Simulated assay, not measured.
Amino acid sequence: MGGGGSGAWLPLLIFAGVMAWRFRSLEKARLLRLPLLWIAPAIVTAAVSVALYGMPPSLLGWAALAAGLAIGGGIGMQRSRLMRLHVEGEGDEARVMMRQSPLALLLLLAVFAARRMILPGGMTVGAGHPAANAQIMTDAMLGFVLGMVLVSRLILWQRARAMVAAHITDS
C-alpha cells in the first residue's frame, strides 16, 4: 500500500462506525433538553472563530465561508425537520422526546459522500496555488459546519417550544 493513501480511510471508517451506531438506536426516543441546545452551537462557533482568527480568510475565503454557511444552514434545516419529536407528560412535567429519522441519517451520509467526492480532486480552484485552494476549501467547510449546527439546533428548539406550548403529542 502507498504511504499517503491508507490514512485517507481512517475518517471514513470512523464515520461508518458512528453511523452504524446511530442506525442501531434509530427507534429509541431520547430526551431533547431544550436548555442545553445552545451548547453545541457555542462550541462550534468558538472553534470556527479561533480557526478564522488564526488564519484569516482572503476575500475569496470569506465568500467560500458564506457559501458554506448558507449550504450548511439549508442542510441543517432539512435535517432538523426530518427529526421525529413528541411530547410526553402534562403541564410542567411535559418533556420533548426526539427520535432520529432514517432520512436525516441518510441526508448526513449523502453530505459525507458528496464531500468525499469533491475534496480529493476538487482542490484546484482556477490556476491558484494548492495551499490557497486548500485554505478556501477549509473556509467553506468551516462555514458549512457552523451553518449546519446553528440552524439545526435553532429549528429543533423552535419546533420543541411550539410543541410544548400547544401540547402537540406528535410531529
Score class of each variant (00 low, 15 high):
residue 111 V to N: 10
residue 102 P to Y: 04
residue 137 M to D: 13
residue 19 M to H: 05
residue 105 L to A: 06
residue 22 R to S: 03
residue 38 W to Q: 13
residue 17 G to Q: 10
residue 163 M to Y: 00
residue 62 W to R: 00
residue 108 L to H: 09
residue 53 Y to N: 10
residue 5 G to Q: 11
residue 122 G to T: 05
residue 55 M to A: 13
residue 126 G to W: 07
residue 113 A to P: 13
residue 55 M to K: 13
residue 75 I to S: 00
residue 73 G to A: 07
residue 117 M to W: 14
residue 106 L to Y: 11
residue 133 N to F: 06
residue 42 A to Q: 14
residue 116 R to L: 15
residue 108 L to Q: 12
residue 107 L to Q: 01
residue 159 R to I: 01
residue 4 G to F: 12
residue 115 R to G: 15
residue 168 I to F: 07
residue 135 Q to M: 15
residue 19 M to V: 12
residue 150 L to D: 02
residue 154 L to R: 11
residue 8 A to N: 09
residue 7 G to S: 09
residue 58 S to E: 12
residue 129 H to L: 14
residue 24 R to E: 04
residue 122 G to W: 05
residue 58 S to Y: 05
residue 47 A to C: 14
residue 150 L to T: 05
residue 110 A to G: 15
residue 118 I to W: 05
residue 163 M to C: 03
residue 120 P to S: 06
residue 21 W to L: 14
residue 93 E to S: 14
residue 20 A to N: 06
residue 101 S to Q: 08
residue 138 T to Q: 13
residue 9 W to F: 13
residue 105 L to W: 13
residue 2 G to F: 10
residue 13 L to Y: 04
residue 2 G to K: 07
residue 80 S to H: 02
residue 120 P to Y: 03
residue 74 G to Y: 11
residue 142 L to T: 00
residue 110 A to I: 14
residue 28 K to M: 13
residue 11 P to V: 08
residue 154 L to I: 10
residue 4 G to H: 11
residue 77 M to L: 15
residue 170 D to K: 02
residue 168 I to Q: 13
residue 85 L to N: 00
residue 150 L to C: 12
residue 35 P to V: 03
residue 154 L to N: 06
residue 91 G to K: 02
residue 167 H to D: 15
residue 156 L to R: 02
residue 11 P to N: 09
residue 103 L to A: 15
residue 29 A to K: 03
residue 25 S to A: 15
residue 135 Q to D: 06
residue 119 L to R: 08
residue 139 D to P: 14
residue 120 P to Q: 07
